[in-house]
């Protein structure tokens, strides 16, 4: 697998991942696992777990991993660059057109549709974070319909405290997000089980 090929393949992924890196997972599975056989599904699962738990956005982590496996350090560089390059041009293009056509009805229509959609997605992503921290697993919505609550479900009081305090700090004050994250990591390491 040569470096140029890796680069072009990841450019293609970069053009196709709408609404963020999560859209990449099915693309990767289809292409890299099922048609190219770069790795087995099991290896892919392990790799995504590492990508999730190491610093850095998951999408970039995964791209670096794939690139490295196929072409060493140059391959990793080609994959990462390839993944990010298309959006470099597209975002700048979008910004310039937004500034230019800000008052057109189409742009206003698009924006007035996307703004609330964003709020809905952010709400959903907040729930995902909470189900991996404040709650031990997914919220038992089934209980509303009378299904029994899974025995593995519980609330972590310390995590709930961190959640509430950081919400308050970040909403009110001018605290830096990095300071909040670092202190939560320390608190969590000492107190969350």
């Amino acid at each position: 697998m040569n470096v140029l090929k890796i680069f072009l393949l990841f450019c293609y992924f970069g053009c196709l991942c709408f609404s963020g890196g999560n859209a990449l997972v099915p693309l990767y599975i289809d292409d890299l696992v099922e048609s190219r056989h770069w790795m087995t599904l099991h290896e892919f699962g392990n790799l995504m777990a590492i990508a999730q738990m190491t610093p850095g956005p998951i999408g970039v982590n995964a791209a670096t991993f794939f690139g490295f496996r196929q072409g060493g350090v140059p391959g990793a560089l080609a994959a990462t660059t390839g993944l990010l390059l298309p959006s470099y041009f597209l975002v700048i293009l979008a910004l310039r057109s937004l500034d230019r056509w800000e008052k057109s009805r189409i742009v206003q229509g698009i924006m007035s549709g996307i703004r609330p959609a964003t709020a809905g997605m952010i709400l959903a992503s907040m729930l995902i974070f909470m189900q991996m921290s404040v709650f031990s697993e997914a919220l038992p919505w089934g209980a509303l319909l009378g299904k029994p609550v899974s025995p593995g479900f519980y609330l972590r009081p310390v995590a709930a405290g961190i959640f509430l305090v950081s919400t308050w700090l970040l909403y009110k004050g001018k605290v830096s997000i990095i300071a909040v994250i670092l202190s939560s990591a320390v608190l969590g390491a000492l107190l969350c089980r």
């Binding site: 907040m126 974070f129 909470m130 991996m132 921290s133 404040v134 972590r156 310390v158 995590a159 709930a160 961190i162 959640f163 950081s166 919400t167 909040v180 994250i181 939560s184 990591a185 320390v186 608190l187 969590g188 390491a189 107190l191 969350c192």
Partner: peptide
């Protein structure tokens, strides 16, 4: 867990 709570 701590970091995810803060991100929430």
């Amino acid at each position: 867990i701590g970091v995810r709570s803060a991100l929430g």
